[in-house]
């Protein structure tokens, strides 16, 4: 695309290994500002690992990562994160509003407590994801989709420049899927960059304008229109995927 557009994320030679076996291997990635990018690949392709390694949450065997030209340590406030829903204990004694407010703890810094301003910001984010009527709900009483939207609201209050979302569409209801898509578009309109680990090939073309196909190594990365081709998908998934004429994709054996 446009080479002069600033890079929101630049990754070079990134490798993560578990017991000498690479989970992701020699990843080079250049993500321009303002794209909605899907990271797609088969199970075990290292999609979540890629996000976590980029965010410094797991040790890297090799490689460098920069956000808007700065290393992670200096770019933390630019980064928003939506972890996998299953990564926390939803029986934790806290409310929806409280979880969303946690997105502001980083900006508050040590020792300062959230106040009215933080509460208002959190309520605004909850309104955007359609959870305003559940602000005081205990989080163990949420449905899967509501949990996901709570996490999304927590990321929205971070007011980041570049968002990383780990499987936000996994096992959610139609309303939540719609809410997430709305939010993605809003974020794009505001010039944010969003990277989403995604598993549903059917919706890739509808939801995302940028695509990275991953299977331990990068298979292809670029505008969805160029990257989402039968050959590339075959290279990513092996022979198990077939491409239908109307743009629909089916997994063999479905």
């Amino acid at each position: 695309m446009n080479d002069r557009a600033p890079l929101a994320l630049s990754v070079e030679d990134l490798t993560v290994a578990y017991h000498s076996k690479p989970a992701i291997w020699d990843i080079d990635l250049a993500v321009p500002e303002g794209v909605l990018m899907a990271i797609v690949g088969p199970n075990g392709a290292g999609k979540s690992t890629l996000i976590k390694a980029v965010l410094n949450l797991i040790p890297r065997a090799a490689g460098t990562v920069s956000f808007y030209g700065s290393p992670y340590e200096q770019a933390r406030s630019l980064v928003g994160y939506v972890p996998q829903r299953g990564s926390v204990d939803w029986d934790f004694p806290t409310s929806v509003l409280d979880v969303v407010t946690m997105g502001l703890y980083g900006k508050l810094g040590w020792l300062r407590r959230p106040g009215r301003r933080e509460r208002d910001l959190a309520l605004f984010a909850l309104e955007q994801v359609g959870l305003l009527d559940l602000v005081d709900r205990q989080i163990s009483q949420l449905s899967g989709g509501q949990q996901q939207r709570t996490f999304l609201a927590r990321a929205l209050v971070q007011d980041a420049q570049i968002y990383f979302m780990d499987e936000p569409f996994a096992a959610v209801d139609a309303i939540t899927e719609r809410a997430i898509v709305n939010i993605l578009h809003q974020l794009k309109e505001r010039g944010k960059t969003v990277l989403v680990v995604h598993h549903d090939l059917q919706t890739v073309e509808d939801y995302f304008d940028w695509l990275t196909l991953l299977n331990v190594e990068i298979v292809a990365s670029g505008p969805t229109a160029e990257v989402f081709t039968p050959e590339n998908l075959k290279k990513t998934y092996g022979g198990t995927v077939s491409y239908l004429h109307d743009g629909q994709v089916l997994m063999a054996g479905d």
Binding site: L55, N56, Y81, P83, G103, Y105, G106, W110, R113
Partner: peptide, 22 residues
């Protein structure tokens, strides 16, 4: 009491806390 916020965050979601610079 001083580190209440941090303890709560790390206990609930350490990964998010890490990504947030804590």
């Amino acid at each position: 009491a001083l580190f209440w916020k941090e303890f709560k965050l790390v206990t609930f979601d350490g990964e998010f806390a890490g990504a947030n610079g804590f």
